[in-house]
């Protein structure tokens, strides 16, 4: 089916995400205004006014009532989705690179950047049920030794925090003590994205080193590795099929030196088990910065350096496609 183009951001997209039910798409970009869209028709539901810098990251509560955004204006904001009001603002020392609601939405984490002499730090805060009683109290603070964290997710049952780092390391922290439980360096470039698979037992990382790796969360052992010719900026695993999508392309700064065709700004579909490329979707005319599967697996959204979000719904042929070995 023809993709729906969400044209509302004025600058490069940084993150797009579906809510749990899949009816809404949230997007943040280098312009300072997060947006929310209907996923079915691409109509813009509203914007969230309050940041004044690049918004790097977002997360949505499971019931889709709350939105967290982290920005380069040194703040994290909690929003009321229904209405777009700012509920609370955490002021930080440096830019916020990652935010995440914990399972149950009672806790959240945010990661601050390592700039201006500050160390990259994971902060854990409580999210009050009643937003009027929200405080800026930091429950826990884990200063990251070594390379700064670029991504962070809550692990299973909120017991761990999984982080991806600028030097390609993937770490598992104990969410209570901040102790590093496990750390592996399988990527040679900065981690650009981490997304869970169908369960929180495995996740996929993408990196500037042109690779994407599926790790088992428990021991960080590699299940599969996928290599491409371009930096990978985002990777997502289908919730219903053993497929994954990779997006990226030549770095924005070196794009002008080649034609768009050679920048490889395509979303690439791989079979997760047989490690084979099964399809490509063109469309963006700049690198793809972020990808998200619809929770039902019936489509995906991609956000690019070109400022567009493209929402795709799969055709029937996609669902029918299977390797003969899969049918057994």
């Amino acid at each position: 089916m023809r993709p729906i183009l969400l044209n509302g951001h004025t600058r490069a997209l940084t993150t797009v995400k579906y809510n749990y039910d899949g009816d809404l798409i949230f997007s943040v970009s280098k312009d300072s205004v997060p947006c929310v869209w209907y996923s079915s028709n691409g109509e813009r539901l509203g914007t969230f006014e309050g940041h004044n810098g690049t918004v790097w990251t977002l997360d949505i509560s499971r019931d889709s009532t709350r939105l967290l955004t982290g920005s380069a204006d040194n703040s994290m904001i909690l929003w009321n989705v229904n209405g777009g009001q700012q509920l609370f603002k955490w002021e930080t020392q440096t830019a916020v690179r990652a935010v995440a609601f914990a399972s149950g939405d009672k806790l959240a984490l945010f990661v601050t950047d390592a700039t201006m002499g500050q160390k990259s730090t994971i902060h854990i805060v409580e999210i009050a049920k009643d937003s009027s009683k929200q405080t800026s109290k930091i429950l826990n603070k884990f200063v990251i030794k070594g390379s700064k964290a670029t991504r962070a997710l809550w692990g299973k049952l909120n017991q761990t925090i999984i982080t991806g780092h600028d030097d390609g390391t993937v770490c598992v922290f104990d969410a209570k003590t901040g102790e590093v439980l496990k750390s592996v360096k399988e990527h040679s470039g900065p981690i650009t994205d981490i997304q869970f698979g169908t369960t929180q037992d495995y996740f996929i990382t993408s990196s500037k080193d042109h690779c994407a790796i599926i790790f088992e969360a428990e021991n960080l052992s590699i299940y599969k590795k996928f290599e491409t010719e371009r930096p990978v900026n985002s990777a997502a695993i289908s919730p219903i099929k053993p497929h994954l999508i990779l997006g990226g392309g030549q770095d924005a700064m070196s794009v002008t030196t080649t034609s768009a065709k050679q920048g490889k700004f395509e979303v690439r579909f791989y079979h997760m088990v047989f490690e084979e490329e099964i399809g490509r979707v063109k469309g963006h005319f700049g690198p793809i910065n972020t990808l998200a599967f619809h929770p039902s697996g019936k489509g995906y959204a991609s956000g690019g350096e070109d400022g567009f979000v493209r929402v795709h719904h799969f055709d029937d042929s996609y669902f029918k496609f299977q390797f003969p070995e899969e049918r057994e």
Partner: peptide, 22 residues
């Protein structure tokens, strides 16, 4: 084919493991 069959078996086993954990 042989390789794929093995990979598929491995994948199914992995999913079963995760399901049990869940």
């Amino acid at each position: 084919q042989e390789k794929r069959r093995a990979q598929w078996e491995e994948y199914k086993a992995l999913l079963a493991k995760f399901r049990a954990i869940k």
